[in-house]
């Protein structure tokens, strides 16, 4: 087996990304969809971190952008949860399939 380099990290990042996309597509629970988004963002930050380690050009940028991703994920989760809780308060469900009205 080859020594671990950029390739292996990118492949793990891709696994996280794809799992996130499938999770977003298949979960009917709104918070499950949110978890998919978290997975996608994590896959991206693994890639950033791997480039920060293995490429001279991204030494600082990779770390900084991964940091930004983490912070933005926190912001996104807070907003999404607020929306989900409001939706739950109004319709008493978290099934995204039943969110079909445009006007509340």
């Amino acid at each position: 087996m080859a020594s671990v380099g950029l390739t292996q990290y990118l492949l793990i990042g891709a696994v996280l990304f794809v799992c996130g996309v499938v999770c977003m597509a298949i979960k009917r629970n709104a918070i499950g969809v949110l978890m998919g988004v978290e997975l996608v963002l994590n896959g991206a930050s693994v890639n950033f971190a791997a480039f920060a380690r293995f490429h001279e050009a991204f030494r600082v940028e990779g770390q900084v952008f991964a940091l930004f991703t983490i912070v933005l994920a926190a912001a996104e989760a807070a907003i999404a949860l607020a929306i989900v809780l409001n939706f739950y308060n109004n319709y008493l469900t978290v099934d995204v399939d039943s969110a079909e009205e445009l006007k509340g």
Binding site: K27, N29, A30, I31, G32, M35, A77, V84
Partner: peptide
Amino acid sequence: LVIFGVMLTATGPFIQLRA
């Protein structure tokens, strides 16, 4: 935060929504 959200909304049928 996410687990809080899960626990606040995980009642009855919503714990397991199947596709």
